[in-house]
């Protein structure tokens, strides 16, 4: 039994979240013969580009007509043209069920929008681009912590992290965005861990072991002159961390 989070046992399989760019097929006709012809014309321009290419199918631009389309037919058509459909969105429940049966998953809308689904610029026509821009933005995960962060605990958030209790020595708090600590910060705080140099750390009582923004860090010794019970902002300017009383 493992006692704590940093697991020492090496597992045989691991799951990681990855993202990649996948072309999305935006349809504006329900007539599959017409669609097939249009696709063949596109392919003629760059025959090798789309051969065995993964493809997302987006029915949203068809709006109410989208239910008229025969998903099984569409998938068969795409496969004949050597596309490999890997996802469908904007479909009805029946359409999703058919797609799933054919091995094409139908991810929830917010999961899909995280994948950048913009086609290559040279393939874009003005109409599809307009649709792509109206898609909702990715929702960033922010978090508020109200209990003390204790020695040995680690917290990681994709967005901003706000902590209303103490961060104790030996604890580590990390955020891809900003970090706010409205209690003594005695552990480590790392903001902008994915490289966002505009991230900041705000804290009301700086006694940290280490602070870092986008990989630029300072240890407690350098922070000592600033160790006060005053509200400070820590930010990156060029290559150096600056600490400003607010």
């Amino acid at each position: 039994m493992s006692i704590d989070s940093p697991s020492t046992a090496k597992s045989i399989v691991d799951f990681k979240i990855s993202s990649m760019n996948v072309p999305t097929l935006m349809l504006s006709s329900t007539d599959l013969a017409e669609v097939g012809l249009a696709l063949q014309q596109k392919l003629a321009q760059a025959p090798s580009l789309f051969k065995y290419s993964s493809l997302l199918i987006d029915l949203k631009s068809l709006q109410k007509q989208s239910t008229n389309i025969d998903i099984a037919e569409l998938i068969a058509l795409l496969q004949r043209l050597h596309f490999l459909p890997i996802g469908l969105y904007g479909g009805s429940e029946t359409q999703n069920a058919i797609a799933l049966k054919l091995g094409v998953p139908c991810p929830a809308l917010h999961a899909v929008t995280q994948v950048s689904a913009k086609p290559r610029p040279d393939m874009v026509d003005s109409e599809t681009e307009a649709v792509a821009e109206t898609e909702p933005l990715t929702i960033v995960e922010n978090r508020v912590i109200t209990a003390p962060v204790r020695s040995g605990q680690r917290i990681y958030v994709r967005g901003d992290l706000t902590i209303l209790a103490a961060v104790n020595p030996g604890a580590e708090v990390m955020a891809e965005g900003n970090i706010h600590v409205y209690a003594p910060l005695r552990g480590r705080a790392l903001a902008g861990v994915r490289g966002n140099i505009h991230s900041c750390i705000f804290c009301s009582n700086l006694q940290a072991e280490l602070v870092s923004i986008a990989g630029t860090y300072q240890l407690s010794e350098a922070l000592k002159p600033h160790s006060t019970a005053k509200l400070v902002q820590i930010y990156l300017q060029g290559q150096s961390l600056l600490i400003k009383e607010l």
């Binding site: 704590d4 020695s151 030996g170 604890a171």
Partner: peptide
Amino acid sequence: VRDSDRMLGILSSK
């Protein structure tokens, strides 16, 4: 104190 803090963290999560 630090070890106790660690233990408190484990109590609240494990």
